[in-house]
């Protein structure tokens, strides 16, 4: 798959960034094999490719979940409580920023700023922006998108409410 994709880009160093972006777009992340293939295509070392790829926040080396949550921690979001939103996602999904749930359904990331400061704090889930979040809305948003806590937790929850 990577091979065909690579052939559509000229073998110039200048194309490296957009090649990496295209690979991630189609494959969801940058695998070790893909990075090696890119290196062969551009006739540079794999270390060079890896050095560029790891420099940028956009690139991931593990796959995204089916739902990819990105919490914005720009200045405005931070001033409006963005950290509490990230905390709430970490707590609900039981993963840290940069991680993915065991069932590969949910991945969580943070971003420096998406420039949507007027609606702070915001999160982006699969390219949809959720505006003016609160920790409480985190649970709601997750529920609407079909997030279910693992069975163990559900049982614990049921026990507590009885």
């Amino acid at each position: 798959m990577t091979g065909e994709l690579l052939d559509s880009y000229p073998a110039q160093r200048h194309s490296l960034l957009r090649i990496l972006q295209a690979v991630q777009q189609t494959e969801g992340h940058l695998s070790e094999e893909a990075l090696a293939a890119v290196a062969r295509h551009l006739k540079i070392s794999a270390a060079e490719v890896y050095g560029v790829a790891t420099f940028y926040n956009q690139f991931r080396f593990i796959p995204y979940g089916k739902h990819h949550v990105v919490a914005c921690l720009g200045t405005a979001c931070h001033a409006m409580g963005g950290q509490l939103i990230l905390d709430a996602f970490e707590r609900e999904l039981d993963v840290k920023a940069g991680g993915i749930t065991g069932d590969h359904e949910w991945s969580l990331d943070r971003v420096g700023c998406i420039g949507c400061c007027t609606k702070a704090p915001v999160v982006v889930i699969n390219d949809v922006i959720h505006a003016r979040m609160t920790p409480f809305k985190v649970e709601e948003v997750l529920a609407v998108l079909g997030f279910k806590k693992s069975k163990k937790e559900e049982n614990a929850g049921a026990g507590a409410s009885q």
Binding site: H14, L16, L17, R18, L20, L42, V52, Y56
Partner: peptide, 25 residues
């Protein structure tokens, strides 16, 4: 049109130039 890939340093002009060249910015 060149789309960066999320690195604050690329706003600095010499870093931006390296980024366009496909090097570590």
């Amino acid at each position: 049109l060149v789309a960066g890939a999320g690195a604050f340093v690329c706003g600095e002009s010499t870093a931006m130039i390296y980024s366009i060249e496909g090097k570590r910015p």
